[in-house]
């Protein structure tokens, strides 16, 4: 009969040389049958470099495969693994357990997103808001038709928006936002930062159109510049900056 392997028997780096273990508390909730969230605790061996995602995958592999978690790239690129780690929204694959300075690590689903199960949340609204601000270049001509030239852009013009194009749509900013905490119709920092990304692009001609889209009652004016979005963004997008610069256009301080 096949034996169930324990973590210690496996020839993984974490099992062989691990000097430390932490308690990983995972929020469990299935909206189909549970009335409330419960927490399951696991002792997990960790190294200096162990990420929260690796610890969760360890639990899935050795203790309980039913833990629902979404991930893909494991390198802060796909934007799938956002969750609340020790009280703050972070990417599980980009957060080392050692940097949390705690023997207990609690993981919960991101706030302000409906829960699918456990740590996995629905992204419908984030993607809808993202689409709403028209996240593409708007112009009459195109550089792919044969008789038009390449649409040139100087390095300085590129600097105006390149930071905002780093967004991986992880939703951490929307999870940290105090407006989002009470207003689920708010367009949110992610989409507003993307509106700025295209408005600030010298090749784009859709500025007036986009400004009109976000100039509504659950639009840009609900931002109070608390800055929490920028503090949790793992890619340096700084949505709060984009939103205030965007508002600068709308108030006539910028053109």
């Amino acid at each position: 009969m096949a034996q169930t392997p324990s973590i210690a028997e496996e020839k993984t780096s974490s099992a062989v040389s691990s000097s430390k273990s932490i308690t990983l508390r995972i929020a469990r909730f299935n909206p189909q049958k549970d009335s409330d969230t419960s927490f399951m605790e696991f002792k997990v061996p960790v190294e200096k470099w162990t990420t929260v995602l690796e610890a969760i995958l360890d639990v899935k592999k050795h203790f309980d495969h039913s833990v629902a978690v979404r991930y893909s790239c494991r390198q802060a690129t796909c934007g799938s693994c956002g969750m609340v780690i020790n009280g703050k929204p972070r990417l599980a694959c980009f957060t080392k357990i050692s940097e949390l300075n705690s023997d207990t690590v609690t993981v919960e689903p991101m706030h302000n997103f409906p829960i699918i199960r456990d740590l996995a949340v629905r992204f419908d609204r984030l993607f809808n808001s993202h689409h709403k601000v028209k996240p593409y270049l708007i112009r009459d001509d195109t550089d792919v038709s044969s008789d038009t030239k390449e649409i040139l852009q100087s390095p300085e013009e590129l600097e105006q928006f390149i930071q905002f194009s780093n967004c991986i749509k992880c939703g951490l900013c929307n999870s940290a936002c105090p407006t989002m905490a009470t207003d689920s119709s708010f367009v949110g920092p992610q989409a507003l930062a993307q509106a700025y990304r295209y408005v600030a692009d010298s090749r784009d001609k859709g500025k007036d159109n986009r400004l009109k889209i976000i100039d509504e009652s659950h639009g840009i004016w609900r931002c109070h510049f608390a800055g929490s979005c920028s503090q949790v963004c793992p890619k340096g997008v700084d949505p709060a900056m984009g939103i205030q610069l965007l508002r600068g256009y709308m108030l006539g301080f910028r053109s």
């Binding site: 600097e159 105006q160 928006f161 390149i162 930071q163 905002f164 780093n166 600030a200 510049f225 890619k235 340096g236 997008v237 700084d238 709060a240 900056m241 984009g242 205030q244 610069l245 965007l246 508002r247 600068g248 256009y249 108030l251 301080f253 910028r254």
Partner: peptide, 12 residues
Amino acid sequence: HGGIGVGKPARP
């Protein structure tokens, strides 16, 4: 809110 003192976009 007017975009003053919020920094300049740059390569992160």
